[in-house]
């Protein structure tokens, strides 16, 4: 594991050398997590998008001062939390009194801020949830196990290969095939949703 590359560090390094495309990859990687965090503070979906965008822009501007002593996502989450709080202050709402946990988005007091998601958003989330569940149930067990051990348990390919008693290359292939399968089921759903939005 020690010789494994840290993709975030490499991407940050590239951004600090003037490569804006590397920052685009960081945005694509973390936008869901940042938006989820911000949605704990702000209920309106459009505002969540705006503040998410603002948080990434602030992060980009602050990147020259990022030295990498903490993980990039920890640093980014701090920026996102502040952006959400500032947004609430700006629109004269009261920000939560306690901090939000970086990893889960839950507050220190153990409760989550209520969000009043729109019916369309709620329906979309439910569809995504159902599709993921159904696809995982239907896919071959070795694919499901490899993917869930990777995504839920955070195991490395090497650790998964030991658990599944197969070569690392096989693990890599199984995880890819599982993702590919899920992606093929979810993509029409998202495209459909985007068309509805346009209409």
């Amino acid at each position: 594991m020690s010789d494994k590359a840290d993709i975030d560090t490499e991407l940050v390094r590239r951004v600090q050398r003037g490569d804006k495309g590397a920052f685009d990859l960081l945005v694509r990687k973390y936008q869901q997590r940042v938006a989820k965090l911000i949605s704990r503070f702000i209920s309106d979906a459009a505002e969540v998008e705006d503040v998410t965008q603002e948080a990434f822009i602030k992060a980009y501007r602050a990147l020259p001062n990022f030295r990498g002593d903490s993980a990039f996502y920890t640093w980014l989450y701090r920026i996102a939390t502040n952006a959400a709080k500032n947004h609430l202050v700006t629109i004269r709402r009261r920000p939560p009194r306690s901090d939000v946990d970086v990893t889960s988005g839950a507050t220190e007091q153990g409760y989550e801020l209520e969000g009043d998601e729109s019916p369309e958003g709620e329906m979309m989330s439910e569809e995504i949830r159902r599709t993921i569940q159904k696809t995982l149930e239907e896919m071959p067990e070795e694919l499901r196990l490899a993917l869930t051990m990777c995504e839920f348990d955070g195991l490395t390919y090497e650790e998964i290969s030991e658990v599944m008693e197969c070569p690392i290359g096989t693990v890599r292939s199984r995880i890819f095939r599982a993702r590919h399968l899920l992606d093929s089921k979810l993509r029409p759903l998202i495209s459909e949703h985007e068309v509805e939005d346009v209409v």
Partner: peptide, 11 residues
């Protein structure tokens, strides 16, 4: 809690 946003192009 499933969130679906795409701000990459906007950013």
């Amino acid at each position: 809690k499933v969130v679906n946003v795409d701000v990459a192009d906007r950013v």
